[in-house]
């Protein structure tokens, strides 16, 4: 049976295609120019060189920045999970005065412009006397690590709290009824039940930390993060190397999304 031509359906398809173009055409341009065989980014495209990736591979500052960003993102995930998961449990399981207000306040770092969070954290760390470069070169600096952790904990709290609200508490009762103490019940029943939310939040925190600029800008010490390094390069104009690094990040993000959706498919 052949579908008849329907103007409304055609219009919808056109709109959908336009949206996809709008979102992905810039990415395509970046990818194409990363293999563009000329130092100046201009028509006509001369595709078919990997030399900008070669330049990238020998750019010490860029690699240092990338390593710093990865360390920062991993530490931000550790802090945000370490504070956020217990926080979500407290919100779900206990009643305390001011709980409703706290539930809204915990979202504040997400809503607040990064520049405000950045300024306030900067004055806080100078108030407590923590140097922006403390911890360097092992980590990019404690203030920026703590700053990312603090700003992104709310992501974990909201995601995990939402999952806990839907979690069937009878499962925990069943576990307790079958001789498992609280600790074993947590590891064997509760945690597997909220694992998708915990992993999802971790991935989100990792991604948000990786491309964070506003808070990072205020708190960074001696070592630039990747977004700041790229931003610094751009001040001298868009170089083909920037297109190469953007393409690498794009490819890694794509890989993460694919891995993530495969992981989620096996979850309940």
């Amino acid at each position: 049976m052949r579908a008849r031509f329907d103007p409304l359906t055609a219009a919808l398809w056109t709109a959908a295609a336009a949206v996809f173009c709008f979102i992905y055409a810039p990415l395509a341009v970046v990818v194409l120019y990363s293999v563009h065989d000329a130092a100046i980014i201009a028509w006509p495209l001369r595709l078919g060189t990997l030399r900008w990736y070669g330049v990238l591979a020998h750019d010490r500052a860029m690699i240092d920045a990338a390593v710093a960003s990865l360390k920062l993102a991993v530490l931000a995930v550790v802090i945000a999970l370490g504070v956020g998961v217990p926080g979500a449990f407290v919100l779900d399981r206990f009643d305390f005065p001011g709980k409703a207000a706290f539930r809204r306040l915990v979202l504040l770092p997400l809503i607040l412009p990064g520049i405000i969070t950045g300024v306030s954290l900067l004055s806080f760390f100078s108030f407590v006397g923590l140097s922006l470069s403390s911890g360097f070169p092992l980590i990019p600096g404690w203030p920026v690590v703590l700053g990312h952790g603090a700003a992104l904990t709310s992501v974990v709290v909201t995601q995990v709290f939402a999952r806990l609200q839907r979690f069937d508490r009878a499962l925990e009762e069943a576990s307790a009824d079958l001789y498992a103490n609280e600790w074993r019940t947590f590891w064997r029943v509760t945690l597997p039940g909220i694992r998708p939310a915990v992993l999802g939040a971790a991935l989100l925190v990792f991604t948000l930390s990786l491309d964070e600029i506003a808070v990072t800008f205020f708190l960074i010490g001696r070592q630039n993060t990747l977004p700041l390094q790229i931003w610094g390069l751009l001040r001298r104009g868009i170089t083909p190397e920037v297109n190469a690094v953007a393409t690498v990040i794009f490819a890694l993000s794509l890989l993460t999304i694919v891995l993530w959706s495969r992981m989620m498919r096996d979850e309940i």
Partner: peptide, 30 residues
């Protein structure tokens, strides 16, 4: 005593089977 120290077992109204375990692992849990 907490539930895990009581010599009784329960069949729950909505069954409360552990969704991430096989039938066999559910039964073996206790």
């Amino acid at each position: 005593l907490p539930p895990f120290k009581r010599p009784v077992n329960t069949v729950f109204q909505q069954y409360a089977l552990f969704p991430h375990m096989s039938v066999r692992d559910n039964v073996a849990y206790g």
